[in-house]
Design a protein around this nucleic acid. Structure first.
Lengths: 342, 342
DNA sequence: CCCGCTGCGGAAAACGTTTCCGTTAGGATT
DNA sequence: AATCCTAACGGAAACGTTTTCCGCAGCGGG
C-alpha cells in the first residue's frame, strides 16, 4: 500500500494547460473534426496528450454530445459455445466501418431481453441493434416496442435482426421458405419418415422453420404426425436429449430436421453415440459444420450479408416507414442426408 | 417525415418533478442504494420513472461517479467462429455477480490491442479485463503496460487472463506443463514420429505449449527435428493449410500436436479430407469438440474456473503486489490418439 | 483608408447525474 | 417542556466534455 498514489486521470483541461491552449482548442484538436485548429497548436495538443497519457473520457463525451458513438448489440444468451454467426458478422462489419461495437447479452428469458434493451438504451448509442428470435406468446413485446419507439423518438436508431413484423427497420431471413425448401429437398432424396427437433413452443424462428418444413412435406404428399415434432430448449444439449427421447419411443424415423445447426449437431452426436444411422439436416450453416462428420446438410444463410445490410440500413437516412430486408438462404446437401435408394 | 417528433429523452429531473420530489431524492430512489428514502416517495419516483419511460443515462452517471460500473473485456480477434471459451466464461461469471460486461474486440495485430485498451480505458470501467496471448517480440508491450499502470493509478482495476509476467493481477494457465504432459502421454501411447502445428512465432501461448511438448518428448527419448514444427496463423484455417504443407513434404508422421483445439480441428478435417489417418491432439478442450469425430484428445482447461478466479480477484481488495493465479489443466485422451500396438 | 470577410482562439453555458452539506421534522430522552 | 438525535430531503456544486457565441487579427477589395 505504499505506491498506491491514486492519481486523477488526465483530463482535457490538463492537456490544454500543458499545451498552452484553451480546453476548447484541445477538444477541437483531439476530437471535434469540423473546425480548424492551427497546425502548430494541433501538434502541441497531440504531444501533450501523449505525454500525459490522456484518453478521452467517453462518458463525458457522450453526455456533452447527447449520444454515444457506435453500435450496441443486444444478443440473447451469449454463453452458447457455438459462436453466434450474427455476432461475428456484426463485429466485422462494424469494424470495417470504424464503428465501435458493444455487446450486451441477455438471458434466454423474454423478460431478460426487455431488461437488456433498457440497459442498452441507457447507453444512448447511435445505433441499437437487437438480435434473437421473438416469440408469439411474448407478453413483453408491447413493452419492448414501447421502449424502442421511445428510443427512436429520442433520435436513436434501431435495427432488428430477427423476424419481420415489428415497426422498426428489420433485416430478416426466410425461415419459412428455408424449412419448406429443405422438406422438398429431403423428400426428393427419397425420405418418407421424418421427425423435427424444435425449440421453445412459441419462438417465431423455430415455428416458421418448422411450419415451412411441414408444409413442404405436405406438398410432397407426406403427412407429419404431431408427435413427430419434439419441443424443448433451443440448445445443442437439449437436442441431444430430445433425440434420445425420440428413439426410445421406437418410432421408425429416416430423417431428422433440427431447426438450427447447433441442435443438429446435438442430434448428430447422439445418433453417433447410440450407433444409429439416421439422416440429419440443420439450418444456418454455421462455420463449425466444416469440421464435423458426416458433413451436415443445412440451409445456408449469408450471415455476413445479413450483418452488413443491417449496418447499412442503420447508417443510412431513416425512411418514412420501417423497412424490412428479407435475406434468402438456400439448401446445401451434404453427407448427412444421402439419397435413399428405394 | 411527419411523426418524427424528436423528443428529448426523459431525464432524472423530469421524473423528480412528476414525482414531486427533488432530483437528489429521485436519484437516491433509483440508483443510490446507501441512503434512505421514505417508502412513499420511493414508490412515487418509481411510478413516475415508469410512466415517463425513464432510463438512467449511464454516461452521465459515469461522469458523476467518475467510473463506469461493470467490467470491460478486451478480446483479441472475436470473429473466429469457435467461440472463445474465455468470453463465455467471463460473461456467465459476471452475470452471476450482476455485473454488466462490455466486450470490445481488437484485431490480431499487437498494435490493435494497444488501441483497444486505450479504447476500453476511455470507458473508465471499474474492471478492465484483458485476454489474449502476449508475444515476446512485442514492441508495444511497454506502451500497454504504461497505459494499464496509469489506469490502476487512477483507481481502476486490471486483471489479465494470459501468460504471467506482467505487473498486474493475472490468471494464467499452465501452457508449458500442458504441452509437456501431452508429449509424455502420447509417447506413452507408443507414438514416435511427431509434428507440431503452431501459431505465430513469438506468441507466448503457443511458444510455451510447443516448448513444453518438445521437452516432454525429449524426456521420453524423442528428438523433434526443427522442421517438424510448423508455424503460421493462430487459426483453424491456417492449420488446415499447414497440414497440407506438412503432408506434401512426405515426412512420416504418426501424430500431430496442434497448439489449440481450433487448429486441431483444422488438422483433423484436412486429414479426413485427404483420407489420411494420423493421430491428432489439441489444447483447450473447447465445447465444440463434443460433436467431432474422432473425438479429440486434448489438454482440458477449466475455463469457467479461470473466468471466475479472474472476477473474484478483480472484485476483491487490491493486494500490495500483483498476484498470479495459475490454473492447471490435464490431458484427456480420446479417440484421436489411439494407443499404438507395436 | 475603410469595410467586410475569414479563420482561429477562448469564456462560458450546456449535458444529466451524484453527492456533499445544510435544514427540517419528529420522536426519544431527560 | 426543553434538548438531543436521527432520518429524510433539497439546493447546489461537482464530474469532463462539446459547442455556441463572441472577439480579435489579418487580409483583400473598393
Amino acid at each position: 500500500m505504499s505506491e498506491t498514489t491514486s492519481t486523477r486521470a488526465a483530463r482535457l483541461s490538463d492537456v490544454a494547460r500543458l499545451a498552452g491552449v484553451s480546453a476548447a482548442t484541445a477538444s477541437r484538436a483531439l476530437n471535434g473534426s469540423d473546425r480548424g485548429v492551427r497546425e502548430a497548436n494541433r501538434a502541441k495538443v497531440l504531444e501533450a496528450a501523449k505525454t500525459l497519457g490522456y484518453t478521452t473520457n467517453v462518458a463525458a463525451q457522450a453526455v456533452a454530445r447527447g449520444r454515444n458513438r457506435g453500435v450496441t448489440l443486444v444478443v440473447k444468451g451469449i454463453p452458447e459455445d457455438y459462436a453466434n454467426p450474427i455476432i461475428s458478422g456484426v463485429v466485422t462489419a462494424a469494424q470495417r466501418r470504424g464503428l465501435p461495437v458493444t455487446i450486451t447479452s441477455a438471458g434466454t428469458d423474454p423478460a431478460d431481453l426487455v431488461e437488456a434493451v433498457h440497459n442498452a438504451r441507457s447507453h444512448r448509442p447511435e445505433i441499437l441493434m437487437i438480435t434473437g428470435g421473438r416469440a408469439t406468446d411474448d407478453a413483453t413485446i408491447p413493452e419492448l416496442v414501447d421502449a424502442l419507439q421511445r428510443y427512436e423518438a429520442e433520435g436513436g436508431r434501431v435495427v432488428l435482426i430477427t423476424q419481420p413484423g415489428l415497426p422498426f427497420d428489420t433485416v430478416a431471413y426466410e425461415n419459412r421458405k428455408g424449412g419448406y425448401d429443405m422438406a422438398k429437398t429431403l423428400a426428393g432424396l427419397g425420405y418418407r419418415n421424418f421427425a423435427v427437433i424444435s425449440g421453445m413452443k412459441h419462438g417465431l424462428t423455430q415455428r416458421d422453420r418448422t411450419a415451412g418444413f411441414i408444409e413442404g412435406l405436405a406438398e410432397s404428399g407426406i403427412q407429419l404426425p404431431a408427435d413427430r415434432v419434439l419441443i424443448g430448449e433451443f440448445t445443442r444439449d437439449a437436442a441431444y436429449a430430445m433425440t434420445g427421447d425420440l428413439l426410445r419411443r421406437g418410432i421408425p424415423v429416416e430423417a431428422i430436421f433440427a431447426v438450427n445447426d447447433a441442435m443438429a449437431l446435438g442430434v448428430l452426436t447422439f445418433l453417433r453415440d447410440a450407433g444409429r444411422s439416421i439422416a440429419v439436416a440443420g439450418f444456418d450453416d454455421i462455420q463449425a459444420l466444416r469440421d464435423v462428420t458426416p458433413s451436415l446438410s443445412t440451409v445456408h444463410l449469408p450471415w455476413d450479408q445479413v450483418a452488413d445490410e443491417a449496418l447499412t440500413m442503420a447508417m443510412g437516412p431513416r425512411g418514412d416507414e420501417p423497412r424490412t430486408i428479407m435475406i434468402e438462404g438456400h439448401v446445401v446437401v451434404r453427407e448427412s442426408t444421402p439419397s435413399v435408394v428405394p
